[in-house]
Write a protein that binds this DNA or RNA. Structure first.
Length: 271
DNA sequence: CCGACGTCCTGCTAGC
DNA sequence: TGCTAGCAGGACGTCG
């Protein structure tokens, strides 16, 4: 679900609501998330003040005054929000951190593909990723990007979704980026000419930037850190628009299954 | 090693 | 109108 723009929106929403606040407790549901919770973390969290809220790829990082990090992944259906006192907990609320201002920081996730974990410091968290997280799209060196494309026989779309190559792109923005670059997502990555590779990287950055400006895309579950929906779904050129006219040429958008995911493209504009 | 595919889970809806 | 198979924004393990 939430990709880079959605996570970035949550981070920006939560930052003013959390920085300077202290976590005064932890409550959990009995259901397991993707990564298991350790009760030993609770004593280390309670009483700590939040110093920073950041993002890396699709990971959300809450930095505490002890130097420790609360690491959150929203998976497909995760919501991470601050709610005012007295707001009843929704179904599938799995982790709740009461704050020192009587508000609550809540993690809710119907499908439980998301996770909330604790690391003693940032190096410990980075070590846990063991090279599974590539650079942010804006930090990815064009030569590295070209090499990543050249070095594989997979489809372009599969490379965009590969978090070790570039962090943060998911199914929606992979499709939208391919459309913006006028590149067929089914093409073999190693068939892209240097100019096409460059166009695709710039398209990824542009699409993500615009999506952040629209506070991300709300298809069904996603909301920002205070519960508001995003707007970028109104800007989709291809995603979820099978059969509808291409905004560029009018030909019907097609959808196929690729890299295990639904993939949308314009059969005329994307070569 | 690489790449394709299944799996985890619940809710919604497309299509019959 | 009502029902249900299949699909959903992600990550990771397994298998060939």
């Amino acid at each position: 679900m939430p990709e880079l723009p959605e996570v970035e929106t949550v981070v920006r929403d939560l930052r003013p609501l959390l920085v300077g606040r202290s976590l005064v407790g932890v409550r959990r549901s009995r259901k397991a998330l993707r990564r298991s919770w350790s009760r030993a973390w609770e004593a280390k969290l309670v009483g700590r003040r939040v110093e920073a809220v950041d993002r890396r790829g699709k990971w959300l990082l809450v930095g505490l005054d002890s130097g420790a990090l609360l690491i959150v992944h929203l998976g497909m259906t995760g919501r991470f929000t601050v709610v005012a006192p007295g707001v009843p907990a929704e179904d599938h609320t799995h982790v709740v951190f009461p704050l020192d201002n009587a508000h609550e920081l809540r993690f809710r996730d119907a499908r439980r593909f998301g996770s909330v974990t604790y690391f003693a410091d940032r190096p410990a968290w980075e070590a846990s990723l063991t090279g599974t997280l590539g650079p942010e799209p804006w930090d990815l060196e064009p030569e590295l990007w070209r090499a990543a494309l050249k070095g594989t026989r997979r489809a372009v779309k599969a490379v965009l979704l590969d978090q070790t190559v570039v962090a943060g792109v998911g199914n929606i923005y992979a499709d939208e980026s391919c459309f913006a670059a006028r590149i067929d997502p089914r093409r073999r990555a190693d068939s892209l000419r240097p100019a096409e590779a460059e166009r695709l990287l710039l398209a990824v950055r542009l699409v993500l930037t615009r999506a952040i400006e629209s506070r991300g895309s709300s298809i069904r579950d996603y909301v920002g850190g205070s519960g508001q929906r995003g707007e970028y779904q109104d800007e989709f050129a291809v995603y979820g628009r099978r059969g509808e006219p291409c905004p560029n040429c009018g030909k019907a958008i097609r959808s196929v299954r690729l890299a295990g995911r639904s993939t949308h493209y314009c059969p005329r504009c994307q070569k």
